[in-house]
């Protein structure tokens, strides 16, 4: 496999915290330029899955490969980010004490070493890219404001903007529509579909309207492993899924 067909490959991944199995023999694949929605009840292991992929949590066992050859279990968060995996958190996490522009500048793809940043100087191309991103996330007129002064929805957008600035191959997005108005939710879905043309995207979401709007393959997680996979209509007619969501 020269250029792997599957960008992300999880096989038999298990994680336990003091006996509690957060992930239990979890396996799935994400293709190149694929967008996938992950749903599941609370405690299904969605966030732990992201933690494992991004190097925050080490799996107890299992295989985790990125781009065919990179063993993600052997690297830490910064290295994994360097390989091209970006992550947006459930609770919008931006640098609240820095301006919107500086947030994007920090995320922008550029050498990440301390000496590189010490002697860094913005060039025209970078400035232009940040302007472009500001337009995309509709924060042009707020660029000098502190990120902490933004509304909740704007912070979500800023974080998506930061994710784009990183220009990763794979984007892991945790509940992007949480706390957004309907209009914002729709716009976010549009934005994600746009992004998915050139990137692989994994979206974790509770909001079924949003998932439907994305119109992509859905993976249902339950108790740390895959319960069902397929189109939203397919999985929502699956009896196991109905039991999990409604039965308990």
């Amino acid at each position: 496999m020269a250029k792997a067909e599957n960008l992300l490959y999880l096989d038999g991944v298990s994680v336990s915290f003091d006996g509690f199995k957060a992930l239990n023999n979890l396996s799935f694949l994400i293709g190149r330029n694929e967008m996938r929605a992950i749903i599941g009840p609370n405690g299904a292991g969605k966030t732990t899955m992201m933690d494992v992929i991004t190097g925050k949590t080490r799996p107890d066992e299992g295989t985790l490969r990125f781009d065919g050859k990179i063993d993600l279990t052997a690297h830490d968060e910064a290295e994994i980010a360097g390989f091209g995996i970006g992550r947006k958190f459930q609770k919008p996490t931006v640098f609240e004490n820095q301006s919107v522009r500086d947030n994007l500048k920090l995320a922008l793809k550029a050498p990440r070493g301390p000496f590189a940043t010490l002697f860094h100087r913005d060039d025209a191309a970078q400035r232009a890219r940040i302007d472009e991103l500001l337009a995309t996330i509709r924060l042009r007129d707020r660029e000098t404001d502190l990120a902490g002064d933004l509304s909740h929805g704007q912070k979500q957008w800023l974080e998506i903007g930061m994710l784009l600035a990183q220009d990763p191959e794979l984007l892991l997005i945790d509940e992007p529509a949480a706390g957004m108005t309907d209009a914002e939710t729709a716009a976010t879905a549009d934005l994600l579909r746009e992004i998915a043309r050139t990137h692989s995207v994994v979206v974790v979401e509770h909001d079924m309207t949003f998932v439907r709007a994305l119109g992509v393959k859905v993976t249902v997680l339950h108790e740390g492993s895959v319960l069902a996979e397929g189109s939203l209509d397919h999985v929502s007619s699956d009896q196991k899924v109905i039991d999990v969501y409604l039965g308990r």
Partner: peptide
Amino acid sequence: ITASKLGKVLIAVRDAESRTRFLGYRVEH
């Protein structure tokens, strides 16, 4: 130091260390 981009990374580390890591910065360095 503080006016450079490195300074901005430092503040990012101060305010959200984990987030900075996920952006690809080796916080320990």
